[in-house]
Amino acid sequence: MPKVWRQVKSGLVALCVLITLTLVVGVATHLQEIQQLAKTYTLLRYQALEPVTTDKLLEGAIKGMVDALGDPYSTYLDANTYRHLQESVSGSYGGVGLLITLDEKDRRLMVVSPFKGTPAQRAGIKSRDYIVAIDGRDTSGMDLETAANLMQGQPGTKVELTIIPAGENKPRTVTLVREVIKVPTVDGRMLPGHPGIGYISLTMFNEQTAGDLGRQLEELRQQGMQKLILDLRNNPGGALSAAVDVASYFVAQGPVVYIADQKNTEALMARGYAKPLPLVVLVNKGSASAAEIVAGAIKDTGSGVLVGETTFGKGIVQTIYPLSGGTAVKITTHKYLTPAKQDINKKGITPDYVVPMDPQLEQEVLSRAPDLERDVQLKKALEVLGK
């Protein structure tokens, strides 16, 4: 026993020496920057006109380090914002129903897509519209989490958004009443007048999506479904694990997606419960992130055919690391590649059949999907399945 303790003691001493050497080398290498940091803290703490606490300054330092990445998807999450994000992932929150991003060129706040049946969609807000103000507050330079936090709130309260529609210059202002946004996942039915053809719309990927999809597929099979149209239009994405689970209903075997970090590339494999059937997937410029993982997996493996317009092009993955006090940092840690190892970030996925749709018509038909009379992309999907 004494020998074991001597070994433990020696190991602890060695670890302490290593940590000390690492700190010494770090301080020596960045001595000037550390001195500047200490001086800035002292000036802000004791010379600024308005009093500021040490906690506030340290929180600002953390936020500044994350902002230094220059990545619109990496950010510091204060306790309130982190709580809202957790609510969204779990399936419901109070808000207007928008997924947003920052435009890569000028870093303006841009809509990825509105959720179906939400105040934002009913107000006519569309993918790639710019949000230039929230309750009169200019969004220039605003990070994504701050913007999302401003739009979320108690159901029944109002929020005013100033929008510049895609391709236009004239802003318009809309007042939305917040609702409980039960993040929609799955909606399905058999298509009337088209025997044996089922239709399923996925409007987001959260913790409930894969289970809901499995139940919907089984219900439609019992109703005689032999072919399927999977609608991923205006699906803003969500959880990576949900995307792999959803794709596994259609990809029989092999990789669904490759996830790459600084050093390694890992294949996430199909779960093995697919029951292949003739499949057409509908996509558009509002199909992003996890929706693109599913679409890319289906296209590359030949499990189905894509119809619509080129997707949004978000091929990176964020990881959330909780901190003390209910806060967290969200950091872009991985990029993903399709099964054919295609990097679709900022490029999107081009469908097998490109079918453009007028933006106004798209807004109308997607709010009532499936619209068998006016939806030209759905008509093309039916034509493809008919072959």
Rank of each mutant, 00 (worst) to 15 (best):
I298L: 06
V307C: 05
Y321W: 14
L306N: 10
T310Y: 02
S324I: 13
P339V: 00
H334R: 13
H334M: 05
V305W: 12
P339S: 02
G304T: 05
G308I: 07
K346Q: 14
I298T: 06
T310I: 07
N345A: 01
E309R: 14
K346P: 01
T311M: 05
K347Y: 12
S324Y: 12
D343M: 02
K314C: 04
T319M: 12
G315F: 11
A328L: 14
T338N: 09
Q342I: 13
T333P: 00
I320K: 06
K314G: 07
P322V: 13
K341Y: 10
F312D: 00
Y321E: 15
P339D: 03
T311G: 03
A295T: 11
I316H: 10
T311F: 06
N345T: 00
G308S: 09
V305A: 03
G304V: 07
L306P: 13
K347D: 10
V305F: 14
T338Y: 05
L323R: 14
T338G: 04
T332G: 00
A295F: 01
G325P: 11
I331T: 03
G304W: 07
V294G: 08
V317N: 05
G308L: 10
K330C: 10
G325N: 11
E292C: 06
G326A: 09
V307L: 08
Q318A: 15
T327Y: 08
A295D: 12
E309K: 14
T301Q: 05
I331R: 07
A328Q: 09
E309I: 11
T310M: 03
F312H: 15
P339R: 07
A295Y: 09
D300Q: 03
G325L: 09
V294M: 04
I320C: 02
E309P: 07
A297W: 06
G304H: 12
P322M: 10
L337D: 02
N345H: 15
K346F: 14
G304P: 12
G325V: 08
G308A: 07
G315L: 10
Q342Y: 13
P339A: 00
L323D: 03
